[in-house]
Design a binder for these strands. Sequence first.
DNA 1: CGTGATTTGTTTAGTAGTGAACAAATTAAT
DNA 2: ATTAATTTGTTCACTACTAAACAAATCACG
Lengths: 181, 181
Amino acid sequence: MPKVDRRIAKSQEAIKKALIELMSEKSFDDITIQDISDRANVSRGTIYLHYVDKFDLLDKLIEEHIHQMGEICESTSEMEYKDANLPWFEYLESNYLFFSTMLASKGAPSFRRQFHEFLIEEFKDEVDTSKEENQELSEDVLLQFIVTSYVGIVEWWITNGMPYSPQAMAEQVGILLERNL
Amino acid sequence: MPKVDRRIAKSQEAIKKALIELMSEKSFDDITIQDISDRANVSRGTIYLHYVDKFDLLDKLIEEHIHQMGEICESTSEMEYKDANLPWFEYLESNYLFFSTMLASKGAPSFRRQFHEFLIEEFKDEVDTSKEENQELSEDVLLQFIVTSYVGIVEWWITNGMPYSPQAMAEQVGILLERNL
DNA sequence: CGTGATTTGTTTAGTAGTGAACAAATTAAT
DNA sequence: ATTAATTTGTTCACTACTAAACAAATCACG
């Protein structure tokens, strides 16, 4: 990995942070490139140096988070659900503004779907209908059941201002996964 | 004013912030230029682009705050003491880490003296021994009295974690100044 | 002491960010 | 529908930041 120039990293961070902040304040349609460069404290041209337009910026932002979540899944694949969930909820917490705006009604309508699809892929290998208690279930039903509930729980937790700690969430969701998979 | 390049402003901000943070963690002597550049996320060379060494950086940092405080004094010169004090304490609050580290025992020993000298200059024109109740006082005694107590109050407020709001402080110190000047 | 490791301060060639200008495309208002 | 005003996307010459290399100075410690 040819480590990226620190100026690039800083500019892109500032730009992405600016977009998230602005999306939490007004509709994506109403956000202009100038708005973003002002907020990021970056020249307007700098944005075009990295992104073709604001849609591309949003795409890449989402893509990056999906990728990060993939990394987390990878690093926790060997753990118990209870433990594996902790980094997950910690990640959600430390990116609260991103997830809350993306899941908000006027956020990024496509994000919920992408999030769902991502989880389908991740849980695909986890469902085990050979286990005794799951004999009567078909794989895809169980998979949809789990993923839908997972998305729902996350969405509820985020949009309700994270009423429980990541630890508490990891533990409880861990129990529920254990029980159903 | 030939407005400064935004890259310069950002770099210098990051560098100054880094120094303040590091000084709140360890002694100035133990801080290296590399430490600062690491913390500021800036190339080591960038520091030398703006400052000759870490002493120069500290000098300029202090000088800037003294200057800012001068601006505040200027903008409030027409107000009642109570009102004039508010921007003052708000400034102290928003630069809490700077003032608390500079006033700390192992901070910048010279800062307290510079701060004192600055206030002497600012209050010089405020003392009025022609007023009836101050007839028996000589100007320099009254001046030293006021400034010493002002520095003391600020130092106490900062090093004790700002136990009162800037508003409360501005009000009370306003009363005390009114009473003595 | 001395000597080995850090830290310093400078230089270098290369890269990213800068503001300004511009025409083209959108959007808003009458 | 015709302006007028904004926003877009691109180009440009210039400047600041970059990492890396270097010798000199300072530090640490056996």
